[in-house]
């Protein structure tokens, strides 16, 4: 059995009495690709907030690797541990160039002194070029990120995630705003990335999830409703009721 990269056990989080996460348990193995689906408001984004240090759970354990407790860490700590996140709404630095967006994401020292002394090396430039080629933005290198189309921003953010070289990639609804063709390319890309990295993808689009061809977790009302292959979970009557058969 593979080592566990991320482990959530009986996590609870409520907002003003509303139980957004309610007894959620989940384990992601190192190098695994996992899709998380679930109706709107199921708590998918909140789960990512908890894993990335943005939201502190009321109770439960969130463990990274062997024994690192993520509930005590903030966003920057979690990112430095190797957790990268793509937001549901594409979020890039609009007034910086595409290239500089990737540069800020590149793995490396995040300190102030390093920031003041930083000089771009040839290797970094090459790496930026590589990343941009992977996400198909090679030709947009010098453009302002704010001038990109919605889909291109999605790609840029995915590129930034790759540049970060995290051990775990959390990807929240990447296909939103993408054409069918782009959606399939994203699925392909995430499949290539998995193996060397763990990847957790949240998505609504069933074709996309099918293309990912991986284990699927169905979330509903803040906890896991079913887990298994896509065919397995889609055959589950409860899942059909709350989600697929809407």
């Amino acid at each position: 059995m593979n080592e566990t990269q991320l482990y959530l056990n009986d996590v609870h989080k409520s907002f003003d009495g509303f139980k957004a996460i309610d007894g959620l348990s989940l384990a992601i193995a190192r190098g695994e690709l996992r899709a998380v689906v679930g109706p709107n408001g199921a708590g998918k984004t909140t789960m990512l907030d908890i894993v990335t240090g943005k939201t502190r759970p009321d109770s439960g354990r969130v463990v990274w690797g062997a024994d690192t407790d993520l509930t005590r860490l903030d966003e920057a700590d979690c990112a430095r541990l190797g957790i990268g996140r793509k937001f549901q709404k594409p979020t890039v630095f609009e007034t910086l160039s595409v290239e500089d967006n990737v540069m800020l994401a590149l793995a490396g020292d995040r300190g102030i002194v390093a920031g003041l002394r930083h000089r771009r090396t040839a290797r970094q430039s090459a790496r930026i070029g590589e990343v941009l080629d992977i996400v198909g933005l090679g030709a947009e290198r010098g453009r302002l990120a704010g001038a990109l189309s919605h889909g291109q921003k999605q790609w840029l953010e995915i590129g930034m995630l790759l540049a970060q070289e995290p051990q775990l990639l959390l990807v929240d609804e990447p296909a939103a705003g993408m054409t069918d063709h782009e959606t399939m390319r994203t699925a392909e890309l995430l499949r290539t990335v998995a193996g060397a990295h763990s990847v957790l993808v949240i998505e609504h689009d069933m074709d996309f999830v099918r293309a990912l061809d991986c284990k699927v977790t169905v979330l509903n009302r803040g906890s896991v409703l079913a887990e298994g292959s896509l065919d397995h979970v889609s055959a589950n009557p409860e899942v059909i009721e709350v989600y697929l058969g809407r």
Binding site: K54, E75, A79, R85, F87, T91, V92, L104, M160
Partner: peptide, 8 residues
């Protein structure tokens, strides 16, 4: 928040 999630 993007900056935070990049580890800064």
């Amino acid at each position: 928040s993007r900056t935070r999630f990049l580890g800064y």
